[in-house]
Design a binder for these strands. Sequence first.
DNA 1: CGTGCAATG
DNA 2: CATTGCACG
Lengths: 312, 312
Amino acid sequence: TPTATTKTATPSALKKQKSAPKVPIRANSHTNTTMPGTLVLPKTPDGCVKITSWNVSGLNSSLKKGFKTYITAEDADVICIQEHKVQQPLLNLVDPKVYPFNWWGFEEKKGYAGVAMFCKTKPIAVTAGLPTHPDPACTKGRIVTLEYPTCFILGCYVPNAGQGLVRLKERMVWDKAMKAWLLDLKSKGKQIIWTGDLNVCHLPIDLRNPTTNTASAGFTPEERAGFSEILEEVELVDTFREIQGTGVEAEGQYSYFSYRFQCRVKGIGWRLDYFVTDQQMYKERLVESVIREECYGASDHVPVVLVIKGEL
Amino acid sequence: TPTATTKTATPSALKKQKSAPKVPIRANSHTNTTMPGTLVLPKTPDGCVKITSWNVSGLNSSLKKGFKTYITAEDADVICIQEHKVQQPLLNLVDPKVYPFNWWGFEEKKGYAGVAMFCKTKPIAVTAGLPTHPDPACTKGRIVTLEYPTCFILGCYVPNAGQGLVRLKERMVWDKAMKAWLLDLKSKGKQIIWTGDLNVCHLPIDLRNPTTNTASAGFTPEERAGFSEILEEVELVDTFREIQGTGVEAEGQYSYFSYRFQCRVKGIGWRLDYFVTDQQMYKERLVESVIREECYGASDHVPVVLVIKGEL
DNA sequence: CGTGCAATG
DNA sequence: CATTGCACG
């Protein structure tokens, strides 16, 4: 049968315009997904340690879009990478003379998750995966714990609850195990830096559209409560929020902008990437905890950075 | 464990250079995969009918790379498309006023095979699939037969034998069914035009590297013999080869260049796309049978074109 | 929208 | 070296 009919789709440009962002977008709102060629970032203050955490959303892709530009410009002492999605270590990713110590965690399933840590100074010990998890083997691509003389650094990629919250149950299992692991570490008497893509927005201020996302992965009451519970019971601090507060002037600062729906230009973001520390670390050593909004381009996440006084 | 070692792969540019092509590349050997914006092709002579056949290797992709540029410039009376890889008819693909009659064949498996025919004049009858095949249902995405007053036109995408010849057996089943169908049609007393990606190089001259490809899909003894048998028993003619002959001056004319290994610039091609006709059609009506080498860019195949005298 | 994979060519 | 669909985010 001939199909000589004609049908035209409505151009997306003609669809109804969304209202302007409540809060201006602070960073340069380029939509391209390539980092600027040149990038200058603040040098680590003397006597301080800088840690960066970045969900790269596929390391091979990120490398083509400016991964090294950021890494070089930041010159952090510890680099925590999430969602590298590779099956084996990528060589020459960072200068081995600058970062002689690196650890990789891989997901069994190809092309998913995966974490890595690069360090200028050698840790005392390294723990792969989440030992307190009922199935520790399946957590190797999601967390690496470094022990240093003064603190533990946990580079973490928390499991996403999934579309339709199909994996919310597994997520709550993770949260419970995570709390247990943090309590374990706390009991050793060292300070704690828990960083990475924690895949939760704790408070309404942590995402642009809280009211419409109470059933979305990352902002369910369950996930928020899970995070609250950890902060309370392990007595930890969300450093960025503690510094910024929850006032209007603190709005609009996010670490993730979905590639979909032009979220970046519209300023529709989520703060999913954290530096959570114990209270002593927060009070006595914290210098800054920031979101590198200007470093959008090589991932749908931007890096987050912590600077603390003293040595690791 | 730290992985501070360094390993560098041999750049492909340093690997040994292959010898120059035996035969100069006739067409413009651009490696990009976009059609030139402007394209002028010979007008169909008065009193003639023009048919084009093109394996587009994914219609959606081809559309972005100049599909319409070719279709418009060629202005054929019948267009045969193979490997469109879509699940439903694409509207506004061709001007419905110019081609009011079109038929689509779809593969059950998503994203594979698929044929389509677009015609300026209405056929008497249309047959979807290969009725003589033991499993006719699975052939709907591979052949459409149009009946016109003077001839049958078969737009065909012959199954590939696969890497390691894993599907050579199915291919031979196809060949047998194809022969039976052609004999069926022949018995009706009309002329025959069998076109499409027949996925075989009949003779050594039909590919650049015959000696190294005797175990490659498309040039096995079995496939070549299958094709020979059809030509002989149905008494059909490979029009392009019949006109060009098998001399040195006929070398280097191919309709397919693999995207791999820069085959296009090296002139390493295969002639897989044919116009096969009965002997009367060849002797009394054939005007030309050509490969549109200059139309590389929107697929790894180029179109092939037949011009015949008289009406369909 | 974009990632990386798998099957196919 | 491409295409497509898929799972995932």
